[in-house]
Design a protein around this nucleic acid. Structure first.
Lengths: 343, 343
DNA sequence: CGAGCAAGGTATACCGCTTTACAAGGAGCG
DNA sequence: CGCTCCTTGTAAAGCGGTATACCTTGCTCG
């Protein structure tokens, strides 16, 4: 038990067993042509028998092979742990990565260590590409990966610049949401934003205002303040005459519908709520959340494909994946008459 | 942009800039004594200037350094994605790993590929140790890591055998739960189990029965059947005269309290519910779940420490971390009189 | 029947770093 | 003043592969 175990089997052992040179083994395992089918079979048999596989690190050192993707998330344990989006992302990343034989290296960091970790991982060649999530306004990572020369793709934010992005086609999402709400009689709608620095915020603001203007309804913005004693009460108190809200974060939407009754607001009778993201959480709260289902798994797959091509040196342009769908559940309902026009 | 970027800087470049041999640089970066403080400083300065860091893969090839932990999860995207436990685990793993410079390699697999992935990762030396979660009865992975000679630790299941384990000290947890419930007047309690094959199930069954016997209350077992048309209704229909349940999975507990009213059972008035795990989900459903808070982050830290020692060749014994605490919230209440003794 | 050539393998030089063995220059000392 | 010993460094041999250049054969073909 205390023994670090049996000597590890190397390519030389396989070669010996198959009665060939190490080069031959290497050739077979790299799909090179200079080996007859007969000996190739013998070599494969030998490798199987010894349970041998080319050493990941060695291949990396000698050029070819053994890639891995770095995912560095700058969030506290708390906000990471309670965002189902990340679970979907991880789950979605894992399969396409396995398909192309890449590893996934994951870490959580504090914001101030973030750059440091990118530099370190890249410098050590611990990873061969980065996936950037939670992209902020003027995100320093964009310049950083550029400077490092590291292949990178960002997820979920159509930021101008040289870094390729995978974005969800959601041009009409706000229009759809606003239409759904106006159809229910709502005339004043607020958008609730979570983390104000995130890069997608401004674009969404614009789309939201546009959609509201098109439909001739009032649009407002309300920031979620997690520092408040009772964040839900705090937010609801700042809503003015809005009878419906569209919430950037599913988690926050869930907290709102769960907690609203306790501060005297009935959902959906008095307030309709739409969540911008969807997961099983939306179905577990009551009322169930009307939400936009984003194609996270598809995005993940697209991002992996994109990075794989980048690493191979191809030139790659941004990718778009199919849009968000509005799943109407129980948290949206006809606007209350008594609130309309009040305030 | 299409250029794979600037030539990568190697140890030789640093050596040249500092006017020393590559060996000297290596010595400095591995804390070896044979270099004077003056030249060491010069070398470090040169390395900084070139942003050089020892190549992760190369260090791995030449023995020393560059370790990584493999976490292979045999779950479908769905059941992985909706179990907050994994988020806590990942979040908890990340920090201690960073502290010792290890990478975390994560993947999800289908059960039938599981062994294959362990073999592959180990064979390729892609990882240097495994963390085993979701340990099942007669789990083949125990023998497998033994056969491979791979350092491994399992989490959350006190399985006899040579593989070291990190377990949560919860000897008294069931006693605590049962005491809480009997204090509320419950005389018949059921334990709801999720995945029947998991290794901890039997041990928990035993503890549960023991705790119930000690308090003189009736103990029953009920298996959750996700295949049923309405799993919650199905489960509640099979509860007999039990007025309280202890649910292995927090997710299932959440589904139960959310859905029970819709099938005519009021929680906690008619049925008290305790969840065996805790996360933010317990606070977002109504009624909020009375739950056991497990020290997931501490377990993760202990597991990392244990694996690190194993990899260094030390002999390591099982570790226990501080116990579960019962967090009493809203899903437990006095037993209903009308159900008592019925059935 | 000998030149020409493709097919099938091997020898060898790396990749970037670690590590052991060894060398050069002082310092300590009888 | 000659000799040992220590300090500070370097040369060189790996680690486990990959990749290129090169060397055999056995044939084809004019």
């Amino acid at each position: 038990m205390s023994e670090p175990s049996t000597k590890r089997v190397t390519i030389a052992a396989v070669a010996r067993l198959a009665g060939v040179s190490p080069s031959a083994v290497s050739h077979v395992f790299n799909g090179r042509p200079n080996v007859s089918e007969a000996t190739a079979a013998r070599i494969r048999a030998a490798a199987d028998e010894l349970h041998w596989r080319p050493n990941f690190a060695s291949r990396k050192v000698s050029g070819q092979g053994g890639r891995s993707l770095g995912l560095v998330i700058a969030r506290s344990r708390g906000t990471f742990g309670r965002d189902p989006f990340f679970m979907r992302l991880l789950a979605g990343l894992t399969e396409p990565l396995a398909d192309i034989g890449w590893s996934l290296s994951l870490t959580l960091v504090r914001a101030e260590e973030e750059e440091q970790v990118y530099r370190q991982w890249w410098g050590e060649q611990r990873v061969d590409a980065f996936l950037l999530v939670d992209v902020r306004d003027d995100d320093p990572r964009l310049a950083l990966v550029e400077q490092l020369g590291a292949p990178a793709a960002l997820l979920g934010a159509p930021v101008p610049g040289p870094v390729a992005a995978v974005t969800v086609r959601d041009g009409t999402a706000f229009a759809e949401a606003v239409e759904h709400l106006t159809g229910l009689g709502h005339r004043s709608i607020a958008r609730v934003t979570d983390a104000p620095g995130l890069a997608h915020t401004r674009a969404r603001d614009k789309r939201f205002r546009g959609a509201a203007r098109d439909r001739g309804v009032k649009a407002a913005l309300a920031a979620w303040n997690p520092a408040a004693a009772d964040p839900v009460a705090d937010l609801l108190g700042r809503l003015g005459d809005a009878t419906a809200i569209i919430v950037d974060s599913e988690t926050i939407a869930a907290e709102i519908v769960a907690h609203a009754p306790e501060v005297g607001v009935r959902v959906p009778e008095q307030l309709s709520v739409i969540a911008w993201e969807d997961s099983w959480v939306s179905s577990i709260v009551r009322p169930r959340l009307t939400a936009f289902d984003a194609p996270v798994e598809e995005s993940a797959r697209a991002a992996v494909a994109l990075l794989e091509r980048l690493v191979r040196g191809e030139d790659v342009t941004a990718q778009t994946v199919s849009g968000r769908r509005l799943l109407v559940r129980e948290s949206t309902a006809p606007a209350p008459h008594n609130r309309e026009g009040s305030s």
